[in-house]
Design a protein around this nucleic acid. Structure first.
Lengths: 279, 279
DNA sequence: CCGATGCCGGAATATTCATTCCATCAACCC
DNA sequence: GGGTTGATGGAATGAATATTCCGGCATCGG
């Protein structure tokens, strides 16, 4: 008796097993810990893969997987794998279970629970409304416009800044030249004065519109640089003369508006531009 | 050429296949129709079972399953089974290949449409998984911890920076003193050296963890400053000695992970802190 | 009623798979 | 520092699996 030193029966449901793997990881030998990490991070692959394929992805030997299973009291790898499969099998029962647990949480009536549920719901509703409002042609048009640009200027303040800063990061990773405007440096007007009609800009703003964003967008658009705008109303002062605009209505909870829809649209645009450049 | 009389490539996503099975059922030979009916009614069993076990339940021969698969243009039963598995694999990541294959198939449809749908779905999925994983007690604990702090330090790089920058903005509006670390200024280590055990910090990072974030978090936590961590695994090197941590698994599409779950949790924490301060 | 065509069942086969075994290696205690 | 214990990699093994093949059968048109 060396490895399988736990007298208790192995867990038969996924979450018990998961907790056990997390708690025992510290005391596990190196390779077995490696398996634990992989299994927690990629339960789906464990459910469907073969011992060989999983071993390869986790960078261990197949035999290590068998040892791992036995260390947790299972008869072999297949026995352990069955637990991972069951997790995916009864998704429906799992779902109702999830809902009831959510309800009991909310029934606890803590203020945090209400907040949490509220913000989750706001995020989901926002994405739902985004689906309705945005048409594919708009995305195509915006992506084409941005793909033509030499430099893409990103304009967003306050609540919109996280969105533009994400785009700046993603564009960087994708090798698309972009300039982030609206950080705390203060030379933004000069930066924008370099924009030409061969560039493009993305401006994001919602009521109450940050005045700086409005000014920058107007300035750049009047200089002939096309503009892609994300805003929350067809009457927004941001709507450009040259360019495309998207209507994104974020649901709010207690006055704090979600960012999920803007983020999802931002990601779509970012990747679409990169793909358009490649093609 | 007798059976596999369709020149087109077989569908790679479950729903296309399902529709195809339904529509072709009428013209299919008796046993193959029998398989189609069983497969439509028990897709989970098809996903997990072996050819022998499925054949038994569907009351046909294993070889019939192979023929069935070939009749739809697949190379063999395993090839067809993979489609059924992908349907269940949905949960978190790894469905990028599913959508990319979808895209190549629906070549007539715009690429942007697929992107857009993918990112919307990733956002919704992420929020769903957030609900499942985060418990209210954690939020309460984190909010209490942060409410006690004199100054809240916000640590996040790269993809996490939009989240911390949002929190910085929201904390500002709510009158909570916070310092944003990780902008391009470069004096971050010194800024963090001012943190005391009476302060607190929020660190956000996902695989691959930005080394600077790791160092900052470790440094500040060893100095006795409690830490609230948002990360993607119980084995994350970010898990603090003093403090609370949240497991947030963002779904990804084409390697670009959503931010919706992190954002929703960030909003919850931000407002919860402000409420705790007020009460 | 008879040939032809396509379908099916079941055995045969070739692969792939999980598991076991053993030699080597590293860590630890005496 | 030598001996022991446990962990690991990798090949060997035997079981299980998907697939192929072929003889027989039903169906259909003449």
């Amino acid at each position: 008796m060396t490895l399988d030193d736990n007298d208790a029966l192995p867990p038969r449901d996924f979450w018990s097993l998961r907790n056990l793997m997390v708690s025992r990881k510290e005391t596990l030998p190196k390779r077995l810990a490696q398996v634990a990490i992989y299994a927690v991070a990629n339960p789906d692959d464990v459910a469907f893969g073969t011992a060989a394929s999983i071993a390869e992805k986790a960078e261990v030997q197949p035999s290590t997987l068998v040892r791992f299973a036995q260390a947790f009291g299972y008869q072999g790898f297949s026995d352990l794998q069955a637990v991972f499969q069951d997790r995916l099998r009864d998704r429906t029962s799992n779902y109702s279970e999830r809902l009831s647990s959510l309800r009991s949480h909310v029934a606890g009536d803590s203020k945090s629970a209400t907040l949490f549920a509220g913000f989750c719901k706001a995020a989901e509703r926002s994405v739902g409304s985004l689906r309705e409002r945005v048409h594919v042609e708009q995305i195509d048009e915006a992506a084409a416009l941005l793909a033509r640009a030499e430099t893409i200027y990103l304009i967003g303040q306050r609540r919109s800044f996280p969105v533009t800063s994400y785009m700046s990061y993603a564009f960087g990773k994708l090798g698309v030249k972009s300039v982030l405007v609206g950080s705390a440096q203060g030379n933004d007007p000069e930066t924008l004065s370099f924009a030409t009609p061969r560039d493009a800009a993305i401006a994001i703003s919602f009521t109450p519109y940050a005045s700086a964003t409005l000014n920058y967008a107007r300035q750049i658009n009047e200089g002939g640089t096309p503009l892609v705008v994300i805003t929350d109303s067809p009457f927004s002062p941001l709507i450009p003369k040259i360019g495309v605009w998207f209507e994104v209505v974020e649901a709010d909870y207690e006055g704090f508006r979600s960012l999920s829809a803007s983020m999802a649209l931002a990601m779509t645009l970012t990747v679409a531009v990169a793909e358009a450049r490649r093609g």
